[in-house]
Amino acid sequence: MKIIVAIKQVPERDARIRIDSSGRWIALDDIEFRMNESDAYALEEALLLKEAHGGEVIVLSAGPERVGQTIREALAKGADRGIHIASDSLASLDALGVARLMAAAIADEHADLILTGLQSDDLGLGQTGVILAELLGIPHSSLILKIEKTDSGLRLLRELEDGWFQHISLPTPALLTIQSGNTKLRYATLMGIKKAKTKELRTVDAASLGIDAQPGLLLDAVALPSRQKTTQMLPGTPAEAAAALVAKLQQEVRVL
């Protein structure tokens, strides 16, 4: 099976968020970047499939030069080769624009399966994968927890809301977006890093892909939400405090 895993490099999850001078994005000077969490699970699923059925795992990522480091990490964890869509101005595109770049970059690969994470930790759009499926004209399914290969294609376990699940069958080629947390991620190893050095990493200049960069959605400004988490102490007698807590659980936490 030939599997492409689309991964995104995002600011680390607990990065200190400061708004940059343009007011349209966060300041990146003091930020460390990581592989997006659900993408790491998508990569893990791809590697498990390869281990079980053979084939090839190709990682695909778009962004500036620093993205190469995240692709290397994926190669170190076991992916076979990488494709880097090099662009310093991805932020000027919307999800459709990015998906178009990806579709163009992998057009010749004819993969059996494309995996992405469910959504990114920064923008949280949760769309790029599904859009890519539509652009490539292949079926997709999202929120996937488990992938089984069958004679006719794939049998999937999909998460529904409120603790419900569903099995889905679909033919390949297909695109799946992977939910975090269902498998155990492997850690990067020294041996993996050394092997990764010899693996192919192809850089494709985004401009060379000929995609019209007119976005349909524009991010005008970002702002810090006004409410920060504080501890609210509930005073009074045990009965009073209990009553106050029940009120909070009903109205604010909404679990009663």
């Binding site: 600011p11 968020i17 708004i19 920064d122 991010l219 005008d220 970002v222 939400p225």
Partner: peptide, 10 residues
Amino acid sequence: LFQGKLNGHY
């Protein structure tokens, strides 16, 4: 954006 740590206006 950023799991609720930032609001974006579109």
